[in-house]
Design a protein around this nucleic acid. Structure first.
Length: 806
DNA sequence: TTAGTAGCGTTTTTT
DNA sequence: ACGCTACTAA
């Protein structure tokens, strides 16, 4: 608590320059270098600045060596940005500060010391697709019906267990101890699959994402020597985005923190948006009880957004019930009103948004690069991409269909993975008949069955086939002569490639692999081959940085594959200067833009239909909305479309409940000011609209309607609340009004809901059948706790959840 | 037994 | 507009 007394060597001669321009709490956070520290940092509070200044202060003023600092970030991108900022403060010395995600840090530790817990250095890292593949095989072995137990659901249960460091035995025990027979059976089944899955991954010398954390934790727990080594090495630990860490990560942080207890965590409960990935906000509470004497600093002043934007965001987030109230304030100007625009279709939404961006850049006040369009799901990006291409607006799509998930990339990478780790079953299965070489389902099945009987991996079995063939003996596996030859050939090819990997750089190895396996030829023969080949070339460009594997080269094939698994952010490479950013709300965390447009502010999209059954889910969606809004510095647009081709919205949409939570005095709704006639012309439901050419955005009635709204936008005056509400209620084209009102605003008051009772059986569209365990509140606030055998205990808002009495 | 195709159902967020 | 399954032709 008494910071001045604890930090080493208070600088002589007044305040250090590094504190210049920081407010009092920020200075406190920078100066508290020794001991545990918790920083609760609201959006735009200069958190990144505080962290980098803190590191710079430690190195510059406190005699801390850069390599003694470990900074854990949420994404690789965040690490890169932190390093760039730090570079400016520390110059070259920042290169010695270790930065990266938990997963990257763990991978490094395991490559180095994994052998101490029986892990081969050449382990493969399985991503989610690989996990599903491996899990399906495990379920087959465990004789579990994939129809009744969807692999995704099972995997997510297993992942939840790993996130709290529970192994299959512990999970089985938990199922056994459970007094709920129905749910216990489900968990027990998962635990059984889990055991097979564990064994399979261990045989294949593979780790999934969760394993990276779990295995590193085990390593540090069981090997005091290694743990002490890291305590020696890292004297200062820093975790950013602490609200998004899971239990395993927190445990890991504690293990890495030596007796010095120099653990600094930075987070914001209101920006916790990864609970679905088992992030546990309880970590913040745990930290406070584990380190009762921690210095706590709260950064509440916002330097990013205008008063209007902050007010709007605060008004939304304050609707969360499970929340520690956290006051935000800003000295920034009031700024422009928040703009609400309601389009008729997703194409119109995109047209309007891109038009608005180009209009803003014509005014000279903003550039394309100042603007970002944010959305809930990746599929929404398409309409915006189309519009950008039509209007010739340069854009940068972040994430999207992930580069490494494209089929051709995945195939090429899997070949390299098999070359690197011959026991990687998942990758081998994927490429064994890619390109088609006569090894169909039957042959592959025979191969795996033979391998299983003999206790071999498939790759070893293939070698036997090749050996038998070379000796002109009969094939040990019952397959056709053609299949036997194909197996033998592939086996020889892979062995040669493994051989070659010792002396070739990764790019050359890739070339040879593509050639020898026939993948290159196959791809070129395909219709969309050109595009695929482009992607392959991009991968090759990445591979050029990686040399031969050698014996202990740190930057060989292994490093390349690790990078491919852990770094998903390809677009970091083509950061062209002045282009519009298209990004999901999740990915936007930690970023800021002068102009932010949030698209698809509709029920079913935000909040997403798959995340609105429980109060906890809706509150996470609300936080997501809050994160998006607080990315905006100067202008915030909220976009919504009346119609959307998205199954969960059912064609006609309802406005997001979060729009209703906006304060009325910061809104401007430019569409209101349009002359009544212009709308139908400009936005009409004419289906041929999509075929028109690109000049429409400039001329035509649409442009006029937009110009009419511009005057209103400029003066920043808020539109009356009633009018705004009226728009939300569907004060629009008559055809639509009919549709929407028939769906949304019943003429008669809704019939009183008959409350559910404990013990009643209900049916839920996603979770299936369950038993009501508890009922609280009434009316719209009626909350029920239901035990679904397939999904566990869920707390649902009865008015929201689509429950049927069973 | 394999390869190619037609039709099916399906769509969150990501280290 | 996407991938997976089931079917058919070879």
């Amino acid at each position: 608590m008494d910071i001045g007394a604890t930090h080493p060597e208070p600088p002589a001669g007044g305040a250090p320059a590094i504190l210049q321009g920081l407010n009092e709490p920020q200075q406190q956070a920078v100066l508290a270098t020794e001991g545990p520290l918790l920083i609760i940092a609201g959006p735009g509070s200069g958190k990144t600045r505080v962290i980098t200044h803190r590191i710079a202060y430690m190195v510059g003023e406190c005699d801390v060596r850069p390599w003694q600092i470990l900074a854990v970030t949420f994404t690789n991108k965040a690490a890169r940005e932190m390093r760039e900022r730090l570079d400016r403060l520390l110059l070259s010395r920042s290169q010695d500060v270790t930065m990266g995600t938990f997963h990257a840090v763990c991978a490094r530790i395991l490559r180095r010391h994994g052998e101490r817990v029986g892990l081969d250095r050449n382990f493969t890292i399985y991503d989610q697709d690989d996990q599903i593949d491996a899990l399906k095989s495990a379920m087959q072995l465990a004789d579990v019906d994939v129809k009744r137990y969807p692999p995704r659901a099972v995997l997510s249960r297993i992942s939840a267990a790993k996130s709290v460091l529970q192994d299959s035995q512990a999970m089985a025990r938990a199922a056994y101890d459970s007094d709920d027979e129905y749910g216990a059976h489900w968990i027990d089944t998962c635990a059984r699959v889990y055991r097979y899955y564990e064994e399979a991954l261990s045989r294949q010398n593979a780790l999934d994402f969760d394993d990276l954390l779990v295995r590193t934790t085990h390593l540090l727990e069981r090997d005091a020597e290694v743990q002490a080594q890291y305590h020696q090495r890292y004297r200062y630990l820093l975790i950013d985005e602490f609200q998004d860490t899971n239990v395993a990560q927190y445990r890991l942080a504690q293990l890495l923190t030596g007796p010095h207890r120099n653990l600094c965590v930075v987070g914001d409960p209101d920006q916790s948006i990864y609970a679905w990935r088992n992030a546990d906000i309880g970590n913040i509470l745990s930290f406070q009880s584990d380190y009762p004497n921690a210095t706590v600093v709260s950064l509440g002043q916002n330097y990013r957004s205008t008063k209007n934007i902050l007010h709007a965001a605060d008004s939304v987030i304050s609707k969360n019930t499970e929340r520690i109230d956290h006051q935000l304030f800003t000295d920034n100007p009031t700024g422009d009103a928040v703009t609400l625009h309601e389009a008729f279709s997703e194409e119109d939404e995109a047209l309007w948004a891109v038009d608005e961006v180009s209009r803003l850049s014509r005014t000279g006040r903003f550039r394309n690069g100042d603007c970002a369009i944010m959305y809930r799901i990746n599929a929404q990006s398409r309409a915006f991409e189309d519009q950008c291409m039509r209007q010739g607006i340069p854009y940068r799509l972040v994430g999207g269909v992930r580069f490494y998930h494209r089929k051709e990339i995945k195939d090429a990478v899997c070949y390299l993975r098999v070359v690197f780790n011959p026991d990687d079953e998942v990758s081998l299965q994927r490429v064994i008949n890619q390109p088609p070489r006569g090894l169909g389902a039957k042959s592959v099945q025979q191969l795996t069955a033979y391998a299983a009987r003999r206790g071999l991996t498939s790759r070893q079995a293939m070698r036997e086939v090749a050996a038998a063939r070379a000796e002109k003996l009969t094939c040990p596996i019952e397959v056709t002569a053609r299949a036997a030859r194909a197996m033998a050939d592939l086996s020889v090819t892979l062995d040669r490639l493994t051989e070659a990997s010792r002396e070739l750089g990764v790019a050359d190895l890739l070339d040879r692999a593509l050639d020898m396996t026939g993948l290159a030829k196959h791809m070129n023969a395909q219709d969309d081959g050109d595009e695929r080949w482009e992607n392959i070339l991009e991968l090759r460009g990445l591979a050029e940085d990686y040399g031969p594997s050698g014996n202990d080269t740190p930057d060989g094939l292994g490093a390349f594959l690790e990078r491919v698994s852990l770094v998903s952010d390809v677009d970091a490479y083509e950061q062209s200067e002045d282009s519009l950013t298209l990004i999901t709300l999740h990915q936007a965390k930690g970023l800021e833009f002068p102009v932010v447009m949030m698209a698809g502010m509709e029920e079913g999209l935000l909040p997403h239909s798959r995340s609105m059954d429980t109060l906890a889910e809706v509150e996470e969606e609300r936080r997501l909305c809050y994160v998006g809004m607080t990315r905006a510095k100067e202008r915030l647009y909220l976009l919504r479309s009346f119609r959307r081709r998205y199954p969960s919205t059912g064609g006609v949409t309802l406005p997001s409940r979060f729009l209703e939570e906006l304060p009325e005095d910061v809104l401007a709704s430019p569409a209101l000011d349009r002359p009544p006639g212009s709308r139908a012309d400009s936005h009409g439901l004419n289906p041929s609209r999509s075929s028109r050419n690109a000049d429409v955005g400039i001329g035509g009635s649409y442009g006029q309607a937009r110009r009419a709204s511009r005057t209103r936008l400029g003066d920043g005056a808020g539109t009356g609340g009633d009018a705004t509400r009226g728009r939300l209620r569907g004060n629009i084209d008559e055809r639509l009004t009919e549709w929407t009102s028939s769906r949304r605003a019943p003429a008669e008051p809704e019939p009183e809901r008959v409350p559910l009772t404990v013990g009643e059986i209900v049916r839920h569209p996603t979770f299936g059948e369950g038993v009501v365990q508890d009922v609280e509140g009434s009316g719209d606030m009626e909350q029920v706790t239901v035990n679904f055998p397939g999904a566990g205990l869920k707390r649902l808002l009865a008015s929201l959840a689509r429950l049927e009495r069973g």
